[in-house]
């Protein structure tokens, strides 16, 4: 019986996305769907009910031509750690059936599909809209079923799903490492599908706490920011942009507040 509060120091997997490099091609979305057995409906035009574990948003600086600027922002699950990385992420804390969990060993927020009963409270809690409900039964017409990955269980109708940072890849890499008598992974041994699919190399993935991993250095970049930091969700996805308006778009500010204003108190919820 593991006591929830006793967590040994583990990894803290996260992502740094260089928005200056992202072209908005959508390869990350396609790779994610193929890797994680995300089904397609006949009509995917209604984005409010289609499943995209990682979704590329299109941001503009809202200025008229010729000053108009565009930025594409891929948004996976942020795997929020909450204040002090104690696992008090918005969704984990509210799930009534413990169907979503914060893994202190990896910092990954998991979703247990067979336990989720579809109350959607976690969706209401997530400010990033990173959680998706299976409104329909998943269907893979014809031979498409043969393309399904055997490492990821398809989700049934009526449950919530979301990006897992390709956790099955972590499990496979750990199994291999154990067989070889190792307890740790090299940086390249565990990479998410979106990271590997990005043609411009905008996505970097690794252990945010490991100084040998690229992400640990990149997150310290002066132009690095996270989405909605002021809510104290403590996300594990960092973005880098050289443009101030993009960094400002990452959070909400009152009219005269400078970008990067910090939260009022360090732990106003817990």
């Amino acid at each position: 019986m593991k006591k929830e509060t006793e967590h040994k120091p583990g990894k803290k997997y996260g992502m740094v996305i260089d928005l200056d490099k992202c072209t908005g091609c959508g390869s990350c979305m396609a790779a994610c769907m193929a890797e994680n057995n995300v089904p397609c409906k006949d009509d995917e035009s209604n984005k409010l009910s289609s499943i995209t574990w990682i979704r590329v948003y299109r941001l503009t600086n809202r200025k008229p031509f010729p000053e108009t600027e565009i930025c594409y922002l891929p948004r996976p699950c942020m795997h929020c750690g909450g204040v002090g990385d104690q696992g008090h992420s918005p969704c984990v804390s509210v799930c009534p059936a413990t169907a979503t969990d914060y893994d202190h060993g990896t910092g990954i927020v998991s979703q247990i599909y067979t336990r989720c009963f579809g109350c959607r409270y976690c969706m209401a809690a997530c400010p990033y809209h990173a959680r998706y409900f299976n409104w329909w039964d998943p269907v893979w017409p014809g031979d498409l079923k043969k393309t399904l990955s055997p490492n990821v269980s398809p989700r049934m109708r009526g449950v919530v799903e979301k990006c897992s940072f390709c956790f099955h890849r972590y499990q496979l890499a750990m199994e291999k490492a154990y067989v070889e008598g190792r307890r740790d992974l090299e940086e390249g041994e565990y990479q998410t599908a979106c990271t590997q699919a990005c043609p411009s190399g905008a996505i970097t993935f690794g252990d945010l706490d490991n100084p040998d991993h690229a992400v640990a250095k990149m997150k310290e970049h002066p132009n690095a920011f996270r989405l909605l930091e002021r809510l104290q969700t403590n996300p594990k996805v960092y973005y880098i942009s050289s443009r101030e308006w993009v960094r400002r778009a990452g959070d909400n500010y009152l009219k005269n507040e400078p970008t990067n204003s910090k939260p009022r108190a360090a732990a106003h919820h817990g």
Partner: peptide, 25 residues
């Protein structure tokens, strides 16, 4: 209102005592 009505009892069985919805149920 729940997506998997047959699993409704999970809210009692696998209760997360920190969730307001559990207390409600």
């Amino acid at each position: 209102d729940i997506g998997q009505p047959l699993r409704g009892w999970f809210i009692f069985w696998h209760a997360n005592v920190h969730s307001m919805l559990t207390e409600v149920a």
